[in-house]
Structures are given as C-alpha cells and as structure tokens.
Design a protein around this nucleic acid. Sequence first.
DNA 1: AACAGACCTTATAT
DNA 2: AATATAAGGTCTG
Length: 341
Amino acid sequence: MLSATWHDLAVVPAELRLDPTLVCGQAFRWKSTGPSEWTCAIFGHVVDLKQTETSVLFRSLGRLSTATKSDDELKSLLCDYFQLHVSLTGLCEKWIEVDPEFKGLAQTQLGVRILRQPVVENTLTFIASSNNNIKRITMLVDKLCKQYGVSIETEKGAFHTFPTIQAIAEDSKIEQTMKELGFGYRAKYYAKTIQSLVQAGDPDVYLESLRSEPAEVARVELMKLSGIGPKVADCILLMSLDKTDAVPVDTHIWQVARKRYVGKSIDPNSVLAADKQERIRELVRQLNAIKSPSTKAYQLAQELIVTLFSPYAGWAQGMLFSDDLVVVPVAGVAKRKLEAE
DNA sequence: AACAGACCTTATAT
DNA sequence: AATATAAGGTCTG
C-alpha cells in the first residue's frame, strides 16, 4: 500500500509544539509513533502528525467509510482541534505585561496550546481522571476505546476510535465491564452518566449545545452528571466548550499558585487596573493563610489566575500546568517536577 | 454551607 | 518484604 502524502498545517513551533501539547494531561490518546510523530484515531481518520523545524504536517493513514475523503476538510478539522485561530504568542505578550515572571514560561512552554476536543471524548475521559494519575488514565482510556470503539487498520497497526455514547449504552452491564477493565469505583460513574446522557436525547447534540451556554450554566449542567465535580467540569469547559477563562484547579495548580504569587509583590509596571491589583493582593493574603487544600483554597487560586490572565486564563493555566510536569523520555511517562526535587 | 472519610487500582517510597 | 502514600477528585453522610 502506498503511503499517504503529508500536508502542511501551516503553523510555526512557537504556536504549536506537539510533544508537550499532546502529553500535558489534556488529551490521552495520541501515541508517539516516531521522533516528533504522533498518531491517533480521531474525526473518523487515523491522523498522523509530524513536527518539523518550521511547521506541523498531517496525513491520514486510514479512515472509516463515513469520514471525509477531503484533505482540506481534514485540515480544517485539525485547525479547529488545535484552535490555530488563537495567537499563543500574542497571549503570552499580554500575560508578560501583567506578570513579568511569566516570561520564563513563555520560553520553556511556548507552543503548548489548549485543544478543542470532541465533547463526548473529553467528558468521558476526565471522569477517569479523578484521584488518578496520567499514566493510568492513559491506560484506561485505551482500554475503553478497545472495548467499545471501532478499529481502523493502518500501516502503523490498528487504532481505535473513541467510542460513541450509543456504543457504550448498548452494553447492558457497563459497570461490570468497566470494573473488569480496571476503572475501579469510577465504573459506576460511567454507568450512571451514560444512562442520563442517553435519556437526554442525542448526547452529542446535548453536550455540544452547552457551547452556546454561559460558562456558569454549562458548569452546573455538567456537574449533574455522575463523576463530574468542579475540577472535571472546568476541564470540559476549557478543553471542549470554548470557555477560555475556565481554570481547572487541582492540588498542583493550587501549589503552583501559592509558590508563584504568595510573598511576591505586584510589579509596579503591571498594566492591571488598580482595583484588580488590590483584589490580587487580597487573594494572595488569603491564599497564604490557608495551608492545606480545600474548596476555598482552590477557589482562591482560581480567582487569582483568572484575575491575572483573563480572558484566556485557562490557556495560561495550561502552560502553568505543563511547566509543572517534566517528561521522562525513557519511559515516556509524565512525572512531576516537585516529585523529583 | 462546610467538612471529613471512603474510595478502585497501580506504582513508588520507606 | 510488608506497608504507606499519592495519583489532574468526587460522592456521601
């Protein structure tokens, strides 16, 4: 079989670097298939990506009969997925004006973007993320796809699509199946969430309709689903529902916020309005007073990051989070900086 | 409204 | 080698 030819996504490395973007804990299905090469079954295709010195290339290694044949259409799907209409370098410039210390991140984490992922995939994936680690989340998502997804054969082997809600719903014993796959107590969350999504009509239509709702409304709706609390809801808002100011706060981002801003004074040259500067001082004071993680502590960290980096605070969080991870090349497993220290 | 405790499973630390 | 701790939290009481 003749290999498909590469096409150019036309994006410079400063705007998109695949390696950190695809392993920084927002997407869990891209497989490293070569130096600076990544492969995943998505949009009905097995998409192959390759980072070059000047751009990112893509090609389709195979597809479902229902998927588009057009390279241009696939290209526009990928441009949308990587949200290439957003200028990351432009955002970084703004963030540095507010917080000069962001300059370091703008160098080491440049090219780390927030993806715009299919809502169903993101929702189901992040239910597996609670009280869990990236390595096992990756493994579980892979098992989910192999269990309920569709296999597409390629020259690089078989890749499985992310399953539809309907495909999972056909299983009359979801909880039992997923327990056997290793999901543990989260299996019950899935059984419940799948059930309520099916009852709501077309799950894709419903979940995507949340894109046009205000963030607060969508957040409340998401949290009605079993296994989705405030943190996971914020992940879905940010990574699927276009809420660029949604800032998922976990134990690490809370620590990062404390470490970066407690005890630091606001830069005199900051372009932030006076009332925001005052609010930040107050938030930092309160953040300093709370020594252990709690709902309140997380809310403070969240408001602090939003106040600093709005209207794309979630994107700034993405770089803060990625910075807190260090990739161990040998195992290919993401490990925490703080752990290593 | 706020706050413990429990919780599947796996890997790493002690 | 047995045991504790932590992992992108959520649910329950």
